[in-house]
Structure formats: C-alpha cells, structure tokens
Simulated scan of single mutants.
Amino acid sequence: MKKNYKKKGGKHQTSAAHAPQEGDVRAKKHLGQHFLTDESVAERIADTLSYKGYPHVLEIGPGMGVLTIYLLRKETDVHVIEIDTESVAYLHEHYPALEGKIHEKDFLRYDISEVFKQDQFAIIGNFPYNISSQIVFKMLELREYIPEFSGMFQMEVAKRICEKEGSKTYGILSVLVQAFYEAEYLFTVPPSVFNPPPKVDSGVLRLTRKEELSLPCDEKLFFRVVKTAFNQRRKTLRNSLKIFDLPENIKEDSIFGLRPEQLSTARFIELTLKIQPHAI
C-alpha cells in the first residue's frame, strides 16, 4: 500500500520535489541511514561531479532526495538506487522527474548493466556508513564504466581512501583506489546537518578515473598482494607475504624489508611484478 506523506511548505514542483523535511521518512539504524538536512551541503556535493564524458549519474541511497534535487538541475540523466521501501515510496510520490529511474535494489548485489548497458556513468551519494567501503570495492569492479565517483563517507574512511603512503591510516582502500583513480578529499561535514546526527564527522571526496585502466601487472595478483600485506600491516613484507612461498633470493630484495604502509601504489605494482613469476 502506498504511504501518504504529509506535504509541508506548499505545493511540490513538477520537475523536482520540495526540500525534504525532517521526519518525512524514518531513519533506520540497520540501514545506516543519516538523512542530510542542510541543502547548502547537498548542493556542494552535487557540484563535485563534472558531468562531462558520461550520459548518466547514479545516486546511491537518496533517502528523501535532498541531494537528488540538485542532481536533477544538472544536464544529465539521473537515476537513483534505494533499498529502503519507505524512501522508495517517498521518492515516487515527490519526484515525478524520476519516473522509471527509481531502482528498488541493493547496489551491492544488483547488476547495474541492466540499467546502463555499456554506457559510462558517474556515482554519487551520501553513502550509508555501514556499507561505504563495500560500495567502493564494487565501484572498483565496475571501474571500466565509472569515470567519476563522489560523495560523503565517514570522515575517517574518506581520508583513508585519499591518504598517501607513510601514514598509519593508509591501507587497502588507499592503494586499490589510487591504482585506478585520482583521489581528492574535498571538505568535512559536521554531525549537526544530519537527522539523526551521527557520532562522527563526515567527509566528501571525489575520485577521477585515470586514463590508463589496466595495470602493468596481473591485477588479481595485485589485489591479493595488497590485501595480504595489510592484513599483517605491522610486519615487514618478507613476513606478511610468506603465503606466496617465494624463493629466498627474491626475498633478499630491499622492498621486502619494508612495511606495507611504506609502499606507494606504484611500488605495490613493482612488488607484484617481482612476485608474479613465482606466484601460484
């Protein structure tokens, strides 16, 4: 049954809905929902994409659409994907411009090619904190189709993705994302602009795909090397990569005396190339 929502602030526009009001949709803790209520922040996030070189934009987890409003003002084809049935009902009622473009699916489990086929598209969103890293990993799987990606994460996660080697927060996400994208941390957002407010600050980042989509090494092995190294990040690579059963003479190379956070993405590629002839 379609839910009737109370309309506040007069009539809705026909091309885009009114600014969402607090309380229109109940935030659900198990979905990691924190609804953005500050329209100036939403507009800033919408402006992080260039909208050039691709025909579509996919917003993940639009909730009540405070960001969607500003996306619909751009010269692009906007689609949204939302798993929360209450939010989906709200979007159908208040956003006629999205007719046929509201996908009630789980982004992590949905084959998005059913929507965009082989077209390029950007991803944007105020991402649920509990699945934000998984969204990034899924984006990496689809990198051939995604030239731009931007949105809001828990600040710690956003900074980790953009961090460079030498930092304690530099990790798996940092290396894997930066192998294929230029990563920029853009700005910090306080808890006070959300309903309900999270317990931590949020951060907005932008990822721009590099021109070269492929790596000069075996990509599956690269992913495996990076993940294995950081799973024991306090150990040197000589010890953390024992699972590869490498010949002793290979491990004499000075790179194996380093810890994973000391290696840039380029050096992880170099490391993978050294391991590749001996990897099973």
Rank of each mutant, 00 (worst) to 15 (best):
I135L: 13
I135N: 04
F137T: 02
K138Q: 14
K138H: 09
M139P: 00
M139C: 04
L140M: 10
L142V: 08
R143F: 15
I146G: 12
F149W: 15
F149S: 07
S150Q: 05
M152H: 08
F153Y: 14
E156G: 09
E156H: 08
V157G: 00
K159H: 05
K159G: 08
K159Y: 05
R160L: 01
R160W: 09
E163P: 00
K164D: 13
K168R: 15
Y170A: 06
I172R: 11
L173K: 01
L173H: 02
S174F: 15
S174H: 11
V175H: 02
V175K: 02
V175S: 03
V177T: 15
Q178D: 00
Q178S: 02
A179G: 08
F180P: 04
F180S: 12
F180T: 01
E182M: 05
A183D: 01
A183K: 01
E184L: 00
L186M: 13
L186R: 14
T188C: 04
P190Y: 11
P191T: 10
P191F: 12
F194V: 10
N195Q: 15
N195P: 03
P197L: 05
K199R: 13
V200R: 00
S202Y: 10
S202L: 04
S202K: 06
G203N: 07
V204W: 03
R206F: 14
R206E: 07
K210Y: 09
E211P: 06
E212I: 08
S214L: 10
P216T: 13
D218G: 13
